[in-house]
Design a protein around this nucleic acid. Structure first.
Length: 847
DNA sequence: GACCTGCTGCGGATTG
């Protein structure tokens, strides 16, 4: 005997002519039996229905006779997604089902886009289902009498949980949930509220569920539902026709444009993913220049383009009006674009999961094949193509590590609650302790935070602006309207640099570029942005005004952003591939194509096997070069380079400059380096004294100061300004820097400062990975080769070397002069030609 | 001739 609700679901699938997948049945069973848990399903697999339909069935079962007239029960389902854009898509799908089965419900969304009138209406009459973002959830918690809003809540769904996990937005979700569970009508604690996460496949699914549900969730009420859909992937590398002439270094990859355009021509709709916004612009421009027939059926999509422009592109993709879109990861999530049948990835995707995610953008029908091409931007990167295929075959996925004890997020949350109805310390402490993130929060730490929001802590007590929260009969409350307003304005954990808006003189916005780029422009200059040729007119009030230009050439802006290292999973498979090469047992076409390159590497130096660690040493007019190849990603290399430089300098004082990429790093000095002696020293690669040596070798103070900027924003120590009137970056930097100094000097045990140091260690240095890499190297056989000239492994690193960082305080002028004097012409002349870089241009420090 | 790495994500008041 099946229930009325289940009948309705089945009937709905039948009418749609859809088959109900096994995982959808399993999901319905779990839901209807009252479980909470995690649904592991890829986008476009019908996961929304998998959760929404059982929820409806459950409701129908409670009112089997008259469900079509039931309404106004209050908010029953809260659906949280990380993306504003997704809320409307999902709302449409849900509303359709309700209409189909005759349920008189309105599905609403509440995000920053929601009009003030709708937000006010929402307070008066609650919808049965509400779709929102983590930030909006916290804004709701900052409203007076917010418990009323959630008093009937039955289920919370966190969509794309893998996207939030591992970020401070994820911690925000954990805290929000810890509050909602206490508001459940079905009993205190985890009495009845069901919580479901939806996640794509990641390396730590079990942990993802654990983090979502918190520490006190009864294990017997947790289910993991997996959509074992067999998605067919067809992955191919684009192999340069003449590998011996292909660049040894470089990141743009435009040389392979003809091959890519052949793929585009063969396909219906292609997404070309690039790794940076600037690279998107360059590729778009290159296509327009060389294949003008694509004008009109080609578009671009990245994070600095105006929203309106991006919405248009998304619509046009749906409407099958576009043949090719050049984009960054701004298109690798969310909305499903059915017409897309081919994905091209230009340059290393840096991780297996990211590549899968992007490949999955093509062939978005059940049963369709996802077709993805990998385009290397330099020769050695082709080996990553082989590694990617192997990793996918083996099902190797990166994990998303949950963030722990993020005090800035907690402070923000405490003030949020104080702004609305206020909180009591003991109660809040136990709620917060129930989250995964704050399971280890000590009471004295919590008290320190309480002291901080009420008295400004030890150091800021005399400044009124830090005394936000007052205590009335044990209730922590914000009474100042100004403090409350400012706080609501700064809820959220995403911080970003100030940018300059680009607008037509005639009105209408194109997007944003960075201050530094605008500073390079003179009125009348042409630059390319958003795929158009623009003439720069002037800057006024954070806006650059432009008009259309007919110039064919122009500067292309670049943006400063995060630098993702090669993931440790992909690095490991990359090393496996290299081992195959060294043993001559390579099978992959990528590796076979690279044979000439590897032969040269073997001839000039050595091809390391799994148990070997290669170090190359050579002298040029620039000085003594040492090259190390851990193949562990650039962040680890950066840390390891500084560490080894420090350890060498203990044997013989020297000043080093450092260059690195995802495969290895270089140490360069004008002194003779006693490398053999250093290698004899057992402690050279040792993890003993690692933290101390890191402290001495790197400017950890500066690294922490950088992290502290964001922490201070999130923790509400600085006010970033009213909408439309941002506080100047310079001022913000000065004030966070000052705060950092003050804490460092007078309150070294300050929790936010401690957090800054921890974040720097974990994210800037990837300390955990660095440790593992050193341990691996200490078991390997060191192969030290003296080489005559840069090898295929060395060259890409050395090309980047002009952006190298000085470990000593040698001034810039001296450096440039020395470079100009010593630039080793005879060494570089023989090398394959790559892009030109102006000597003397330095890249900003990484931290 | 220039450009030649560096992603993504959200939210928002009041006064005059």
């Amino acid at each position: 005997m099946i229930s009325k609700g289940e009948q309705v679901i089945r009937e709905w699938y039948r009418q749609k002519n859809w088959t109900q997948f096994a995982f959808q049945k399993e999901m319905a069973d779990a839901y209807l039996s009252g479980f909470s848990g995690l649904l592991n399903a890829p986008t476009g697999s019908g996961k929304t229905f998998a959760l929404f339909l059982p929820f409806l069935a459950d409701f129908i079962n409670k009112h089997p006779e008259n469900y079509t007239t039931q309404k106004n029960n209050g908010l029953l389902m809260l659906w949280i997604t990380p993306l504003r854009a997704l809320t409307n898509d999902i709302k449409k799908a849900m509303q359709e089902v309700c209409n189909d089965i005759g349920l008189p419900w309105t599905i609403l969304t509440r995000t920053g886009d929601t009009s003030a009138a709708d937000k006010a209406a929402l307070k008066k009459k609650l919808p049965e289902v509400l779709l929102t973002t983590p930030e909006s959830l916290h804004l709701m918690l900052a409203q007076k009498e917010y418990p009323k809003m959630f008093q009937n809540l039955q289920v919370v769904v966190i969509d794309e949980w893998h996207e939030l996990l591992g970020t401070k937005r994820g911690v925000q979700v954990e805290l929000g949930l810890s509050k909602l569970k206490t508001r459940s009508p079905l009993g205190e604690g985890w009495g009845g509220l069901r919580i479901w996460g939806i996640s794509a496949t990641i390396g730590n699914l079990e942990q993802a569920a654990e983090v979502l549900l918190g520490n006190d969730f009864p294990a017997e009420r947790i289910k993991m539902v997996r959509a074992n859909l067999d998605k067919k992937l067809d992955i191919r590398s684009v192999i340069p026709e003449n590998i011996e002439n292909y660049s040894w270094a470089g990141h743009i990859g435009v040389k392979l444009l003809p091959q890519v355009m052949e793929i585009v021509a063969r396909s219906k709709t292609t997404l070309i993913f690039t790794n940076t916004r600037s690279q998107s612009e360059i590729w778009y421009h290159a296509i327009l220049d060389n294949y003008p027939e694509y004008a009109g059926v080609m578009a671009m999509h990245h994070g600095s383009l105006d929203n309106e422009l991006r919405n248009w592109v998304e619509q046009a993709l749906h409407a099958e009006a576009l043949k090719v879109v050049v984009c960054t990861s701004s298109l690798d999530l969310g909305v499903d674009f059915r017409p897309v049948d081919t994905v091209v990835q230009v340059g290393s995707p840096k991780g297996v999961a990211r590549f899968m995610q992007r490949a999955g953008r093509s062939g978005h029908h059940p049963g369709a094949v996802s077709r993805a091409y990998f385009v290397p931007t330099h020769s050695l990167e082709l080996l990553e193509g082989a590694a990617l295929k192997q990793a996918i075959k083996q099902g190797v996925f990166e994990s998303r590590d949950p963030m722990l004890l993020t005090m800035d997020v907690l402070i923000q949350y405490m003030v949020t609650l104080a702004v609305s109805d206020g909180f009591r310390a003991d109660e809040l402490y136990s709620e917060v302790k129930s989250t995964f993130a704050f399971a280890d929060l000590r009471r004295d730490e919590f008290n320190q935070l309480l002291d901080f929001i009420t008295n400004g802590g030890k150091t800021l007590a005399q400044y009124d602006e830090f005394l936000k929260v007052e205590i009335e009969n044990g209730l922590y409350k914000v009474n100042s309207r100004r403090v409350a307003m400012r706080h609501r304005l700064s809820i959220g954990t995403i911080t970003s640099e100030l940018s300059i808006r680009v607008k037509w003189l005639s009105g209408g916005s194109l997007g944003t570029i960075e201050e530094g780029f605008v500073a390079k422009l003179k009125p009348g200059n042409t630059f390319w942005f958003a795929g158009r040729s623009l003439e720069f007119i002037r800057v006024k009030e954070m806006t650059a005004y432009v008009k259309k230009s007919n110039a064919k050439k122009g500067l292309i802006p670049s943006w400063a952003g995060g630098r993702m290292p090669l993931s440790s999973q992909l690095s490991a498979v990359f090393r496996d591939k290299l081992d195959e090469v060294a043993h001559g047992i390579e099978q992959d076409i990528e590796v076979k194509a690279l044979k000439p390159l590897f032969d040269l590497q073997a001839q000039l130096s050595h091809l390391p096997q799994r148990h070997e660690f290669l170090i190359e040493s050579f002298k040029s007019r620039e000085g003594h070069h040492l090259l190390f190849y851990p193949f562990e990603g650039r962040l680890v290399h950066e840390g390891m380079a500084s560490l080894l430089a420090y350890r060498i300098s203990k044997i013989k004082p020297a000043s080093f400059s450092i260059a690195m990429n995802d495969y290895g790093f270089e140490l360069l000095t004008d002194e003779d380096i006693p490398i053999e002696k250093a290698l004899e020293d057992v402690a050279f690669f040792s993890i003993e004294n690692l933290l101390d040596d890191i402290q001495s070798s790197l400017n950890s103070n500066e690294m922490a100061r950088r992290r502290f900027r964001d922490i201070a924003h999130i923790g509400g120590l600085v006010f970033t300004g009213y909408p439309g009137q941002p506080v100047k970056n310079k001022h913000l930097q000065a004030s966070t820097s000052l705060l950092f100094e003050v804490f460092n000097e007078y309150e070294p045990d300050n929790l936010l400062v401690r957090q800054a140091y921890n974040e720097a260690l974990a994210f800037q240095l990837e300390e955990f990975r660095l440790r593992a890499a050193l341990q691996r190297i200490s078991t390997q056989t060191i192969v030290l080769k003296t080489i005559e000239r840069p090898t295929p492994f060395a060259f890409p690193i050395m090309v980047d070397s002009l952006g190298r960082e000085r470990l000593t305080t040698e001034t810039m002028e001296e450096r440039i002069a020395k470079l100009a004097r010593n630039y080793a012409v005879d060494d570089t002349e023989k090398l394959p030609k790559t892009r030109n870089r102006k000597p003397g241009i330095t890249r900003k420090k990484g931290f």
